[in-house]
Design a protein around this nucleic acid. Sequence first.
DNA 1: AGCTTTTTTTAGCCTTGCCTAAAATAATTT
DNA 2: AAATTATTTTAGGCAAGGCTAAAAAAAGCT
Lengths: 225, 225
Amino acid sequence: MQTISREDYLKAILKIEEEAGSVSNQALVEKLNTRPASVTNMLHTLAAAGWVEHEAYKGVCLTDSGKDIALSTLRKHRLWEVFLVDKLNFSWDEVHQWAEDLEHVGDEELTNRLDAFLGHPAFDPHGDPIPTAQGQWSDGRNLIPASKTVEGDRIQLKGVVDSGESYLKHLDGLKIELGLILVVSKSLDFDESKILIWPDGSEASLSKQTLQNMLVEKLSRKGKE
Amino acid sequence: MQTISREDYLKAILKIEEEAGSVSNQALVEKLNTRPASVTNMLHTLAAAGWVEHEAYKGVCLTDSGKDIALSTLRKHRLWEVFLVDKLNFSWDEVHQWAEDLEHVGDEELTNRLDAFLGHPAFDPHGDPIPTAQGQWSDGRNLIPASKTVEGDRIQLKGVVDSGESYLKHLDGLKIELGLILVVSKSLDFDESKILIWPDGSEASLSKQTLQNMLVEKLSRKGKE
DNA sequence: AGCTTTTTTTAGCCTTGCCTAAAATAATTT
DNA sequence: AAATTATTTTAGGCAAGGCTAAAAAAAGCT
Ligand SMILES: [Mn+2]
Ligand SMILES: [Mn+2]
Ligand SMILES: [Mn+2]
Ligand SMILES: [Mn+2]
């Protein structure tokens, strides 16, 4: 039977699988901010339910049914985030905490109605793709970290690597939001920082770390669009 | 610290206080569908938190802080019900189960934004008043059960006594919904049933039990409005 | 008043999910 | 290869919130 904690674990396993290929207990300890013994314990529960395959000391991976639950939970999380930003006017750095609760409410029917109400959004407020009702969530886009751009590039912010509150607030402070178009004015070799130009003509220097976490799309270099 | 279960108990105590004056353990057993020992247990927890006053074998009542929590939870419950009906197009008999979960999500800020988004509704989909952010929820209306109407009365359905799924579905089947205006065509003494006339001219007979659970407002007897 | 029934509490147990500490295993160094 | 370090598991607890069964108290009856 699904519980809040079990759904959170499955979602965490899914994300670690995506970004690291294999899932160690240690990775779950960090992602879920818990203790190794708790992880081992929960993996036994999840394995008994048939949602993961787990061999002691070897690691864990999702089964098909486990992946279904994880994707459905992730879908709900991201749809609720869209709701909170689009309808309740929260900013992108405030919504994760509530979505972490809301994702455990409702069934497929409710989720699909929410999806329709929101206009079937493809991405959440952090630029992350929203799995479909059928569990598809191939991204399609080819995003690169802003740190890999060169002078003269026109880029549009489409996502973030780190969607933690502190990084998002940092971007807020720089007047950087999803969809913003910037031009790379200068690349400083020395500390890998770059000077960017805002649409209003203002300029600012962004650190390597800030740039690495910005996922951007390269636009044609001159077009007005 | 607040938990889902504690909020549910406080809300149940509030409602029983309203409708019965005093709150027995037995009443909580029935309202929350649990066992007497569980109630005693939780009342100790709530008393220790300072949310209720409880004397063994004497009963329980809310403290000011307990009432605050109960009202806030009830407010959230009813606002989410409005959301589900008005925005996601659920029917009034489907929303309670989800509101029972949603009421435990979010803080005051989120609730107030939801309230604003919904246009500060005064009543939920079952006609129950929604407490304000300041914890006011005096009804103001003077509703009577439809069983107390007489031939010739023009009445408008404004609420229900029993908002359980089966009764609401029963009303659905009769094409009776909140706001509907009916005229009392005949009162049958023998079984206390009545024949009602719908706006489209159709008629139907409603049983005493059905009528007792309909809360209506008497309208002027001839006006078009 | 004395007996019976209902209500409430106590006692004891269970499940979920978390924890620490210690033991076992795997991975890295030297 | 042996020693050290890191990871994972086991063992043993704990808190919340359920449960049943039995005891205690209150209420209702004769
Ligand atoms: Mn969560
Ligand atoms: Mn997100
Ligand atoms: Mn609830
Ligand atoms: Mn309601």
